[in-house]
Design a protein around this nucleic acid. Structure first.
Lengths: 229, 229
DNA sequence: AACCTATAGTGTCTTCTATACACTATAGAT
DNA sequence: ATCTATAGTGTATAGAAGACACTATAGGTT
């Protein structure tokens, strides 16, 4: 492995853009940096990739260490490698993104972060490094992807009503959808399992609850079905 | 920059999947490796990222050095970082892909490669490292992307007939398309400039020639137009 | 008990888009 | 003059997307 030391080579980090949904809309998870550079600034959770872990594993580990959030479905977003993006030295970062149901994931700041917190997308602090660029690309990817793949189900609780599903789509897409057309289409996809249950303790007519049937979804995809919502 | 030496950190390379089109169909550009590991094997052109160049620049440089192909529009594909993908040490590779018109790009093997050559996709040699995986992902991306973005124009010469355009789409998508419907749709997009010229020296009725109007395309995209072919 | 409020749930019509499909025109070769 | 290979053109049908308004009901309020 001598060549590793022959020249200075770029280092590799991972950074995670974690989207969460609650009644106020979309949020993202940030940490407050403890060490230099950008000490005190808010940043995406992330850190250096170790020799004995894959990129995916590194992203999961850093997310867990810095925020306490674990077991999320992280998807690779893009790799950022501009020369000056870290003021200290050359750092290439592989960015990941994920969607989580905000209520399922309690956060706890840890180790190399002062704090971890959810921020509304329209009320963000200044971010360290080029993390604003990374976030922007993540939002674009999310909007593009949610239209033809049912990734958005990660944002919802296990059991959800069609209204919750519609609001999630409206929030992510940033526009309103027609109720009847949405329901027709969502049910027509054949990946929602009707639980024969209704909401409880709501002061209006209770909605039926559904579950996302991932097995049926994967079967349809295998047969070449093309999703779109 | 002391920390670079405190621990062994993964190295970073770039690899390029270059698709070319000629009358026989889709080809990809490979180099024969000169040094270990996999000496003599065919592989995707690529190499280590230097400290003072961006990832995109590194991909362009390695492609030029190893194959003589330059000035192509490289797009980032995915970053591969499994622990054992290079037998020597830990190497993370950022994969790029591009489409070129085969006749415009004469290849010339150089420096750290024995040879460079185009290979038909259905008649490939065994590839070094995990390059078969990278290639497979590139093919999937290409098929997905060609349907809703006019990237395929890179595969054609500057001036082309609608027949050439249709054959290119058929080749990439792997299925045949209806001539009249294809022409209707292609012309309807409004990004083809009619050059008021026809083919020369063909032993049949000569086809009109068109040019891809990138400026018009970008203007339409900016106004939220959603392409699909 | 009557009423209020908030959301659930339901169908039809119109418009647009995708697809299937067959013949005439013409440049160059024979 | 004829042949060959490809250019170029329009319509009809089927399916998908989008617009649109009312009745039903759980719980709260008076």
């Amino acid at each position: 492995m001598a060549f590793v030391y022959e020249y200075a080579r770029p280092s590799v980090t991972v950074d995670c853009v974690i989207f969460g949904l609650d009644d106020d809309g979309l949020k993202i998870l940030l940490i407050q940096r403890d060490g230099d550079p950008y000490a005190g600034s808010w940043a995406l959770p992330g850190g250096f990739v170790e020799m004995d872990e894959s990129l995916d594993q590194a992203a999961q580990r850093e997310l867990q260490e810095e925020t306490g959030v674990s077991e999320v479905f992280l998807e690779q977003l893009y790799t950022f490698g501009a020369v000056g993006r870290d003021p200290r030295t050359r750092v290439i970062t592989v960015a990941y993104y994920a969607l989580v149901n905000l209520k399922d994931h309690k956060i706890e700041a840890a180790t190399d972060a002062r704090a971890a917190a959810w921020f509304a997308l329209d009320d963000l602090p200044a971010l360290a490094f080029d993390h604003d660029q990374i976030l922007q690309m993540a939002q674009e990817r999310l909007q593009g992807k949610v239209r033809y793949q049912p990734i958005g189900f990660e944002l919802l609780p296990e059991k959800f009503s069609l209204r919750q599903l519609q609001r999630m789509y409206e929030t992510v897409l940033g526009r309103s959808l027609d109720k009847r057309n949405f329901r027709k289409k969502a049910l027509g996809l054949g990946v929602l399992e009707d639980l024969n249950e209704v909401e409880r303790d709501v002061s209006h007519r209770a909605a039926r609850l559904y579950r996302f049937d991932r097995a049926k979804y994967e079967q349809l995809v295998k047969n070449g079905f093309h999703f779109e919502l």
